[in-house]
Write a protein that binds this DNA or RNA. Structure first.
Lengths: 198, 198, 198, 198
DNA sequence: CATGAATGAGTCTTCATTCAT
DNA sequence: TATGAATGAAGACTCATTCAT
């Protein structure tokens, strides 16, 4: 089947990536074998290696995909309609993350957690995670400035530092809410609102 | 009545566990091989297997040890001297965590992150992490009640939910601060104080 | 009657064979992959398989081509002008072989050596090499008879056995001279002349 | 089975090496799989990898072992009893090589040929082969000087260059005699004697 | 008890060849 | 005919665990 379109190549890549994400959601990066991904994707080993140079390459692609969601999500909130406060943004965020988790049958938050963990020992993943955190921070700064413009952020303080803390709530939510089932989006958002209420 | 004293057994276990934590800090649970741990501990494989049933058992012990630090730390803050507010407690926490990271040559936060990640695919680690999160939450509730008693928490809201959010800040700090080097304890604490200032 | 002319087919075969020889010169028969040959030839895999039944077939063609050079070379010397002695013939031979090596960017002697080695485990290559050695022997006998006729071979002895020894010098020259760089054509020829001088 | 003696380790290494040589004699370096060597040695894969770092390491050891024979052999001839001439030395050499081939069930000459071929694409083998050729050349120079001392080498000429040619006869004998069965030791020695007779 | 050599199932990856387009 | 994506059977190597000494 030669001379396939770019769309076909792209679809195949997604097919493999989706399969790999399901596998990693179940078993983590290291316990996911290429054989698992191959079986889950429905392709042959040769085919998978035609789209990804190796397991390392696949892992990087998975990490990029899983983390990409956060920054996008937050940016949409930042430029969205209605009055914005840190609390409303956080509420929207955790609900979106919760939805992503449900939609992916629980794979999404697990893959994200694995990516963060992998960053602790893999330089290339570290860079992907670091770049992502910077993007999310920038998006949070946008949100804070928008809140300020809406007249909803009368507290002083360095917006960048505040953004760091706001980013920091996401790992905690993913851990408690999505992995451990100890908290849901509404409770988390309520708790945040209480803490930051004036 | 074993031939060697309990103290001796216990010291050996610690020796192995320390070695294993250094290894896991470098390579994560899955890339750490028993051979690494054996070499790092200076013992023989037979000896290590005499103290831990297998790798799984060792991993559980490492996770328990690494996570134990958090609850202990927070509890001490909760019952400590001086006026307590969420912000002062958080400040003390992140500084203590930062110190733990430095003291362990960076291993501590990495091992913690690996434990959280492992919880996503390993039921037994999930239980350890879950129990730990519950303990930390209880400690945060203690802190909140202490703050209330000190007259420093005039906001209403469910203390348990607030505690969930406060726990949630730790994974974010570990990720950004200790793994990525994107924030330090003081900045993080300042950001938190700004967000929660009245 | 094929759709493309025989000349075209033949040119394509040569194109592939040349590419394959460059590859084998670099990596040997077994480390040369069909993908290497395909890339080096500038054709598609389907095309290459249209001209050669498979790798085995290609290897046989390469071996035949590389070894063919020797017999041709020696025959030309045997029927050439001027007085012929074993020493002059040998001198001409090693110089010609040296030139072939340089012209092929070093590929020729390496491919020859790989063919000899392959003969040790591949019956079909063994037959090709055996036939080639017989041809070269015959050519050396021609040379010896010519030398005798020229009055330059006053030693007695079985010409066939002498030819076997003379053939035997070629592998040694290829090994030392062209692969290892330990001897050049002139030195080798001088050494031979010294050994056989009367 | 811990704490084994050096002799045991050494014996195990030889056991593996012997097995590997038989395999390489049959299939060459590249078609010999580690599984073949493992099966032939009667050990487990883990055991084999405990004695050799990998296939590359094993190949180097095989090459060293197979080639080592030549230099030793020739040196013994050089310092041996009785009158020495290039022809007697050559006769002794080819007979010894023939015997080695028979004793190893034909593996020895094949392995040697594979080592020479491998030198064309493998830098490390090239160095082993190069060092070996230098040793053999030195031994041939010894032989020539001994012959001179015995009054059996009245021809002038650079001894080193002559030695290069004499080394050069070995690859040819191995190829024709042992691989192709086209010549035996006596015929080859006779041919050499005729060529160099005065 | 301690040792560390040995085991062997399990991983990642390659590559000759085919065949739908 | 020509193309090159897809196949899948090997192959090299690792590593948790055991057990003879």
């Amino acid at each position: 089947m030669p001379k396939v379109s770019d769309a076909h190549r792209s679809a195949r890549r997604e097919q493999i990536l989706d399969a790999a994400i399901r596998c990693v959601g179940r078993e983590g990066f290291h316990r996911t074998t290429m054989a698992h991904v191959i079986a889950e994707s429905g392709l042959s080993s040769g085919a998978v290696y035609g789209y990804f140079k190796g397991k390392e390459d696949l892992i990087k692609a998975i990490a990029g995909r899983a983390l990409g969601g956060f920054a996008e999500l937050l940016h949409e909130i930042a430029i969205g309609p209605g009055p914005v406060t840190p609390a409303t943004a956080m509420r929207a965020m955790v609900h979106e993350v919760e939805r992503l988790g449900v939609d992916s049958d629980g794979a999404f938050p697990k893959v994200v957690m694995h990516a963060w963990s992998e960053a602790a020992r893999n330089q290339e993943i570290l860079e992907i995670v670091g770049a992502n955190v910077d993007q999310v921070q920038a998006a949070w700064v946008e949100v804070l400035e928008r809140a300020d413009a809406d007249g909803n952020l009368r507290v002083p303080g360095d917006r960048a530092a505040m953004a760091r803390v706001l980013i920091g709530l996401m790992p905690g939510f993913v851990l408690q809410g999505l992995l451990l089932g100890k908290v849901d989006a509404t409770t988390y958002a309520d708790g945040f609102e209480s803490l930051t209420s004036h």
